[in-house]
Deep mutational scan, measured.
Amino acid sequence: TTIEWNGTKITVDNPQKAKELAKKIAKKLGLTVKVHGNTITIE
């Protein structure tokens, strides 16, 4: 699972952990999480 935001890509083996990490990042930055299959985008 890949997390993408602002040109940065982070690959996380565990999809559940990836989703939790994305939510934490999005919350800190005041952004939203969008899931597209194996890609999680923070916008």
Score class of each variant (00 low, 15 high):
1 T>Q: 05
1 T>F: 13
1 T>G: 08
1 T>W: 14
1 T>V: 14
1 T>D: 05
1 T>A: 11
1 T>Y: 11
2 T>G: 07
2 T>M: 09
2 T>A: 08
2 T>E: 08
2 T>C: 10
2 T>Y: 07
3 I>Y: 04
3 I>M: 06
3 I>A: 06
3 I>N: 06
3 I>V: 09
3 I>G: 07
4 E>N: 08
4 E>Y: 12
4 E>R: 08
5 W>R: 04
5 W>P: 03
5 W>L: 08
5 W>F: 13
6 N>T: 08
6 N>R: 08
6 N>Q: 10
6 N>H: 12
6 N>F: 14
6 N>C: 15
7 G>D: 05
8 T>I: 15
8 T>A: 08
8 T>R: 14
8 T>F: 15
9 K>D: 02
9 K>M: 10
9 K>P: 03
9 K>N: 06
9 K>I: 13
10 I>G: 01
10 I>C: 13
10 I>H: 02
10 I>E: 01
10 I>M: 06
10 I>A: 01
10 I>F: 10
10 I>Y: 07
10 I>W: 12
10 I>P: 00
11 T>K: 09
11 T>A: 05
11 T>C: 11
11 T>F: 15
12 V>I: 13
12 V>Q: 02
12 V>G: 01
12 V>K: 02
13 D>T: 13
13 D>K: 14
13 D>Q: 14
13 D>Y: 12
13 D>C: 13
14 N>P: 07
14 N>I: 05
14 N>Q: 03
14 N>F: 04
14 N>T: 12
15 P>T: 05
15 P>F: 15
16 Q>G: 07
16 Q>H: 12
16 Q>L: 11
17 K>S: 06
17 K>C: 15
17 K>R: 12
17 K>H: 09
18 A>C: 09
18 A>H: 01
18 A>I: 04
18 A>N: 00
18 A>Y: 03
19 K>T: 08
19 K>N: 07
19 K>Q: 11
19 K>P: 01
20 E>A: 15
20 E>N: 11
20 E>H: 10
20 E>L: 14
21 L>Q: 02
21 L>P: 00
21 L>C: 08
21 L>D: 01
22 A>H: 00
22 A>T: 01
22 A>L: 03
22 A>G: 03
23 K>C: 14
23 K>M: 13
24 K>I: 13
24 K>P: 00
24 K>L: 14
24 K>E: 11
24 K>Y: 15
25 I>R: 00
25 I>L: 09
25 I>G: 00
25 I>A: 01
25 I>K: 00
25 I>Y: 02
25 I>H: 01
26 A>N: 03
26 A>K: 07
26 A>L: 04
26 A>Y: 04
26 A>C: 07
27 K>I: 10
27 K>Q: 14
27 K>T: 09
27 K>Y: 07
28 K>N: 07
28 K>V: 10
28 K>M: 10
28 K>L: 13
29 L>C: 13
29 L>G: 03
29 L>I: 04
29 L>N: 06
29 L>H: 14
30 G>F: 02
30 G>S: 03
31 L>Y: 07
31 L>N: 02
31 L>T: 04
31 L>D: 01
32 T>E: 07
32 T>W: 03
32 T>N: 09
32 T>P: 06
32 T>R: 07
33 V>S: 02
33 V>Y: 09
33 V>I: 14
33 V>T: 04
33 V>W: 06
33 V>N: 00
34 K>S: 11
34 K>Y: 10
34 K>E: 05
34 K>F: 08
34 K>D: 02
35 V>A: 05
35 V>L: 08
35 V>Q: 08
35 V>N: 03
35 V>G: 01
35 V>H: 07
35 V>D: 03
35 V>W: 08
35 V>C: 07
35 V>F: 12
36 H>R: 11
36 H>Q: 12
36 H>K: 10
36 H>N: 14
37 G>D: 05
37 G>A: 05
37 G>Q: 06
37 G>I: 03
37 G>W: 03
38 N>W: 04
38 N>P: 03
38 N>D: 08
38 N>L: 07
38 N>S: 10
38 N>K: 04
38 N>R: 03
39 T>D: 03
39 T>Q: 08
39 T>Y: 10
39 T>E: 06
39 T>H: 09
39 T>S: 09
40 I>A: 01
40 I>F: 03
41 T>C: 08
41 T>N: 04
41 T>S: 09
41 T>K: 10
42 I>D: 00
42 I>R: 00
42 I>K: 01
42 I>P: 01
42 I>E: 00
43 E>S: 13
43 E>Q: 13
43 E>I: 14
43 E>R: 09
43 E>G: 15
43 E>D: 09
